[in-house]
Computed example of a mutant assay.
Amino acid sequence: MTRSRENELAEIVVDASFRIHRTLGPGLLESAYEAILMHELQKRGLNVAAQVPVPVVYESVRLDTGFRADLIVEDSVLVELKSLEKIAPVHKKQLTTYLKLSGKRLGLLINFGEELIKNGITRIVNGMPD
């Protein structure tokens, strides 16, 4: 997938997140935001998978208990959702690791718990904040 397509997908995810947050505000469970964002993205014609298992391979041993990606959009952009008062540094590290394990280049960490959603969106490319 081209970087321009990844960027386009990220813009769509961010736009949908703004719309959801503007309508519902902070305070719902993460699982509710996940279901709503998935619905919103599918309405926009995107292929979205939720709770996608991504294995960890360690010393040639495949461990299927690695993690579950909250959402993967168009098999390209990994979206990790939170509903917290504030994002901690560990959450960004978590997304960085998820990108590495999944082989994805672009990830979005979206915290619906922020009063202003723009303060709750972090974009990470190749493991580095963008």
Rank of each mutant, 00 (worst) to 15 (best):
Y98R: 13
K43M: 15
I20V: 11
L106Y: 05
N111D: 11
E6N: 01
I87F: 02
T96G: 06
Y33L: 09
R123L: 09
G45E: 14
K104Q: 15
I72A: 03
G45A: 00
I110F: 09
L37G: 00
P89C: 01
L81I: 04
F112R: 09
R3G: 05
V48C: 06
Q42T: 12
E80G: 00
P129Y: 15
A16M: 02
Y33A: 03
E8C: 01
G45H: 07
Q94W: 13
V90P: 09
L109Y: 08
T122G: 01
L46I: 13
L46D: 05
I20G: 11
D15M: 02
V73M: 13
L63W: 01
H91Q: 14
S83I: 03
E74F: 12
P55T: 09
R68M: 12
T65F: 02
S17F: 10
F67S: 12
K93C: 11
N119V: 03
F112Q: 04
D75P: 05
L99W: 10
I87V: 14
A50R: 14
H39Q: 08
N111I: 09
P53W: 03
I72N: 06
G107Q: 11
S102V: 14
M38H: 06
S83D: 02
A49D: 10
G120Q: 09
L24F: 15
L24I: 03
D75L: 14
P89M: 01
E40T: 01
N119A: 01
I12P: 00
R105W: 06
V125T: 10
I117P: 02
V54L: 11
N7E: 14
E8W: 14
A88T: 10
V48N: 04
G127K: 14
A32R: 08
G127C: 02
D70E: 11
S76G: 06
V57N: 10
R5L: 07
P129D: 04
F18S: 05
P53A: 03
P55L: 11
T23C: 03
M1E: 05
D64H: 12
L95C: 07
E40D: 04
E8K: 08
T2A: 00
N126L: 14
K92N: 05
D15S: 06
K93A: 13
H39G: 00
S31Y: 15
I72L: 13
R5C: 00
L106M: 05
V73K: 04
V48W: 15
V48F: 10
P26V: 00
E6F: 08
K92F: 02
E6S: 02
A69L: 10
Y33E: 04
R68Q: 04
V57K: 07
L37Y: 01
Q42Y: 08
E74C: 11
V52K: 12
P26W: 08
Q94H: 04
D70G: 04
E34F: 00
L78V: 09
N126Y: 13
L95R: 09
I36W: 11
A16P: 07
A10G: 06
E115M: 05
N119K: 11
V52T: 08
L78D: 08
D75M: 12
E8M: 09
E80V: 00
I20L: 15
R3L: 12
G113P: 12
Y58V: 10
I117G: 00
Y33F: 05
G27N: 05
R123P: 06
S4P: 02
D130C: 05
M38Y: 13
F112W: 07
R19G: 07
R44D: 13
T122P: 04
M38C: 06
A16K: 02
L101K: 11
S76N: 12
K104V: 05
L95S: 07
